[in-house]
Each structure stands twice: as C-alpha cells, then as structure tokens.
Design a protein around this nucleic acid. Structure first.
Length: 583
RNA sequence: GGUCCCGUGGAGCAGCUUGGAGUGCUCGCCGCCCUGUCAAGGCGGAGGUCGCGGGUUCAAAUCCCGUCGGGACCGCCA
C-alpha cells in the first residue's frame, strides 16, 4: 500500500534502500541548478536527502522552502559523488515525479545555511514558524519533549499521580505580582493566574493523594530576564510522609536520568550539599556557580584595627582577580562603575605588584602590618588584584563580592564550560527583615528545621527553614521545602510575620480549614523546567526552549499580543464594575 | 523605576571616533548561461525615508536632545 504523501522519512534512507521506489514529502532546503540537472536537498522531520531532477519548467522553478512531494527511485550515487558528511550521502533519489504541494514566498531570513543562527531575535520570533524549521531549533523542542517523557517515567515509576490544577484561581501567597482575569459572570471580581500550584498541591496532600506531580504552567507578572518569562513551566511535585532528603533524592534521580539520556553524562550522586550560610560566605550567592573556585575571603578580623575608615565596618570581605594587577586605569575605573550599577558605593581594590608591593589608591591607607600580610591572607599572588567590599550589612557586602567573583570568572576564563556543577543549597533563613518586621523568605507554609521548631519565633533573625534549592552552574533550577502541617506551628509563623487572624483567614482560610482535617506531613519542590531544558540544550536564554516566547516588553511579535480590546469586550468583561467592599 | 549596548536594501555586518554624493562586504532575491553538485559555479540586474522626531551646521547615517523598538543587567521575581 502506498501513502499519498510519504512512504519513508527522507533522512532515514541508506544504501540498503537502493532500488526501492519511494514517495517523499518535505521542504526544499537547498537547490543546485546545473541547467540540465538539478539537485535539491529535501528536508523533512527525519533529515535530508538529495533529490536529482531533470531540468524542466517545474523543477527549474523550485525555490527555497517550497513544500514538495517527490516520487522516485533510491539509487547509489555515482562513484566519487558520495557525500560522507551526510547520513544519506551514499544515495540519492532519482525523481520520476515532482509535485509542488505549496510555494513559499521569498524568506525573511535564511533558514538553511551558515547564517541561520545569527538572525536577530525579533525577526526570528515574528516568523517563529520559519525559525523553528531550522534544525537546531527543532532539536531543542524535540529534546524538551523527551525531557518531559523522562520526567514522567521517573515520577510514574515512583507512583506519583499526575493531576491538573486550575489556571483560573485566586491570588496565592507567593510574592510576585498576579496576572488577573475579569470574571464576566461576577462583574468586579477577578481570577488570578497561579504563580504556582502551591496551595492546590498541598490540598492534594490533605486529599490523600500522597504523591502528586504536574508539568505546570505558572504565571508571574514581573520583569523579564534571559531566564525569566511571565509564563513559565515547572515540574511541580509534592509528597506525603517524607522529609527533606527524600525530596532531594527524587530530584537527583530526575536530574541524573535527564542528563544521562539527553546529555550523555553521568552525574555522580549524591549531589554536594551546602548550607545557605556557607554558600553566602564562600560564594556570595544563594545559587553559587561552583564550576570554579576563587572563593571569597573574610577580612573583618584582619582589618579589625585598621586606620582605613572604609574598612572600619561590620563586615569586610575580599575576592582575588588573578592577573588583575595589570589592568589599565580605565578597566579599574570600569569596575567602580560596575559596582555602582549594583547599588554599591564602589569596589575598593589593591594591586599586588610583581615585586610583592601593594599598589592602587587603597594601599596607602593601610597600616604597614596590614600591607605586609594582606596578600597571604587573601591568597593573592604577585600580579593579582584584590577587590574589597565593606559595609554594615554582611549579606550585601558578600553579594557584591559574589557578583564580582562571577564577573572575574567570566573575564579571566576560570569557568570550565564542559562541567555540570550541581549542588543543593539547604537551611535557608526562615525569615527576612522588612521595614516593620519579618516576612517569610520562602513562603509562610515552610517548616522550620527540627532544631528551630521550638525557637524560630523567638529568634527570627537566625531561624532556619527546612527549605532547599537545587543549583546547576549558577542557575537555580529547583526550589522547595518541607511544609508545616501542625496548626500551632503555622499560627506562630503567622504571628512572627505579623499577620492577623483576619488577614490569614481572608488570604488562605480555605487552606487552614483544610488543615483542620488531618493533614499529613508533606514536602515538595518545583523544578524550573525552562531553565533545565535550556541548560541541557546549551542555550543562554530560556526563550530558545519555549516554542512561542515573549519579548521583554511582554509582547509576542508573531501574534501581536497583547492587543487593546473593544469597548464591547470591555463592557462585557465587567472590568469597570465597582464593588463597594473592594479594598 | 534605573544603567548599559544595539537599530544602515530581505538577512548578517562594516562605515560613525575625525560631518563632505547611500560608500563597502558576505548571503539572499530576479533574469540568463550551465548535466554531478552538495555553502554549486559564471554573467547581468533590482532592492535604502541609514528606526522616528527635533536641534547644531554651508553640509548629518556620522555630533547633540528626545522618542520608539530589541537585548543584557540592577530594582523586582519568596
């Protein structure tokens, strides 16, 4: 039986098919018109094959990206004309029949060819359906599909249940701005799109599902970054009757399976674990890139008696820039600008001269004893530069140095790009200070660690939460926590962050009510699926792994979204309805 | 809300520092030639409000101000 369009994939043809008559359908990737004979590279989802056509009006008129059907015989290429570069290079199709299924207008940018990857992003997104015809883009989306399948396999093997949760819901307690949707049936009332399925998955634990997962779309109305889109995908999961390590084990299993099958790399387990406190001290970040060392050095004690006013601070730290002493004045000034762009006053530096003497504007402010031992204390060699951050708030000083460390890593080529450096960051602070008190660092349902169960509300500054992040090469790719299931603990958390009973009732009364009916101990996490697939694909932006992403102003160049609405739509949606009790 | 980079025929770039005719490169497009190419080749051709507006100047792609669009980052995103 023959198929009207295709009997076999173009890219699958090999020498053993010689002699067969095949029907192929696909696109004209390239054509080479010699007059009497015309070669075209026919592309379909399986790959390419060379088709040989005799010159006639039909074949001569073929252009790039015409959609065509070819019937012809597979034959071995004439001796000497094989192309070992191509999987199908030993054979070719002698076309007996050519049907143009549809023509293509001249292309807005090259699809096949060497410049294909260099096209401006706006143009690529406007014609995303053409952009996606390119092999590299196809590969990425197919890989993402495979990643989904691998994750599902792992989850189902562990008896997780895949459950969908609403996209039209109410505002949840995460910290981001909500996208809101007017409700025609209740003018003046609005749905919120979920920032994550957080509350629903906890309700599913109350419901006795025990193990839930979902490849869930999440929505947060915040500004874009290379790794942030307003709608993004998480592999969301929650487990009953487990503690932290079982969640981390499962996460490792998912990651190892993904990297094994999609990157061909065996990631050793268990992944290293680092406390938040150590991550901050050593790397100045809660998502350290540990593909290189060059760790921060604490200098607070070292400068305890310093005559230099700037270093008479609660916290002084340093990071070394190898070979940084021979930077030009302009480059060193550039670092000051770089630091100011991050809200710092500047970035003090000392240059270790080849003879070991210290140079730079800061050196003359230091005592002789300080100068003598400084290079040894921070681990600097002659020729290095040492950057310092000092200030009243330890975390701020360390984060500035952490950013400098990353920048140094990039500029000095310290980062081993071939490496996959996974680690769990654990024991986050439970609360962070606000102008008036405390707020939850993670979210208000995050449990304290066992040591802090009795005392977290007496010492919120130092209390630790049983929360965890998974980091790869400096990207946060998973975040989760053990949840609170005891009502008295929950009540104490609300009191600590200053929520009144009325506020908790109106914000998440339904969850607290559910928790009156025998909630199981539970814990969970969400894996940033766009970031994980971007890492696997080796691309710099998650836009590359999303079929139809948005640009930084929130628009989609292809559809033109968002658009204004008509007065009729506005009226029908009830956007302008006023509710007296609204606040 | 802020900082920085980019915007030049369909694509990707150079030209801008030091103002002087839309000047150049690679690719694509159109036509003709061409029977073994695979980034085919040869000849010829078309295609531009230099993002937009204003200013300086005898003269602006080039300098200045503003604005729009894209990107990176800070803030923001627990």
């Amino acid at each position: 039986m023959s198929h009207p369009y295709r009997t076999i994939g173009a890219g699958t043809l090999r020498s053993d098919h010689v002699g067969e008559t095949v029907t192929l359908s696909g696109w004209v990737a390239r054509r080479r018109d010699h007059g009497g004979v015309i070669f075209i590279d026919l592309r379909d989802a399986s790959g390419y094959v060379q088709v040989v056509l005799q010159d006639d009006e039909n074949s001569h008129g073929l252009r790039s990206e015409y959609c065509v059907r070819i019937v012809g015989d597979v034959r071995a290429r004439p001796a000497g004309n094989e192309n070992p570069e191509l999987p199908t290079g030993a054979i070719e199709i002698a076309a007996a029949e050519l049907t143009v299924l549809s023509e293509a207008a001249p292309l807005p940018f090259p699809i096949d060819g060497q410049t294909a990857g260099e096209v401006g992003e706006e143009s690529r997104l406007k014609y995303r359906y053409l952009d996606l015809r390119r092999g590299s883009a196809q590969k990425v989306l197919r890989m993402r599909s495979a990643a989904n399948a691998i994750a599902r396999e792992v989850m189902l093997r562990h008896e997780f249940v895949e459950i969908e949760t609403p996209n039209l819901t109410r505002s949840t307690p995460e910290g981001a701005r909500d996208f809101i949707v007017p409700v025609r049936l209740q003018p003046g009332h609005w749905y919120a799109l979920p920032q994550s399925p957080q509350l629903f998955k906890q309700l599913l634990m109350v419901a006795g599902m025990e193990r839930y997962f979902q490849i869930a779309r999440c929505f947060r109305d915040e500004d874009f970054r290379a790794d942030r889109q307003p709608e993004f995908t998480q592999l969301d999961l929650e487990m009953s009757f487990v503690s932290r390590d079982e969640v981390l084990d499962l996460a490792e299993e998912i990651i190892v399976a993904l990297w094994r099958e999609l990157a061909g790399v065996e990631i050793p387990r268990p992944f290293p674990r680092l406390s938040f406190a150590d991550a901050l001290s050593r790397y100045g970040s809660d998502k350290p890139d540990v593909r290189f060392g060059n760790e921060l050095v604490d200098c607070t004690e070292y400068f305890a008696q310093t005559p230099f006013r700037v270093f008479q601070a609660a916290h002084v730290g340093a990071v070394v820039m190898p070979g940084g002493a021979n930077q030009t004045r302009k480059e060193l000034d550039g670092w000051q600008e770089w630091a100011r762009a991050r809200g710092a006053k500047g970035l003090a530096y000392v240059l270790v001269q080849p003879d070991g003497e210290l140079g730079g504007p800061v050196a003359k402010n230091l005592s002789d004893a300080e100068k003598a031992g400084l290079a040894a204390h921070v681990g600097a060699q002659p020729g290095d530069a040492v950057f310092f951050a000092a200030g009243p708030i330890r975390r701020e000083a360390l984060e500035l140095l952490g950013a400098a460390r990353l920048e140094i890593g990039k500029r000095c080529g310290l980062i081993d790009e071939s490496q996959w450096a996974f680690l769990h960051v654990v024991d986050f602070p439970m609360f962070q200070p606000t102008d008036t008190g405390w707020t939850a660092e993670h979210h208000p349902f995050t449990a304290p660690t066992a040591e802090w169960l009795d005392t977290f509300d007496k010492d919120p500054e130092n209390a630790l939460a049983d929360a965890y992040d998974l980091v790869c090469n400096g990207w946060e790719i998973m975040s989760g926590s053990v949840r609170i299931h005891q009502s008295d603990v929950q009540r104490r958390v609300f009191e600590t962050i200053g929520l009144t009973a009325d506020q908790t009732e109106s914000k998440f009364g339904f969850l607290l009510e559910a928790f009156q009916y025998g909630p199981p101990p539970h814990a969970g996490a969400a894996l940033g699926w766009d970031r994980i697939t971007a890492l696997l694909a080796g691309v710099d932006s998650i836009r590359e792994v999303i079929a139809f992403p948005k640009v930084a102003s929130g628009g989609d160049p292809l559809t033109g979204a968002p658009t204004p609405i008509t007065p009729a739509q506005r009226k029908e949606a009830g956007i302008d309805a006023v509710i007296e009790s609204a606040n």
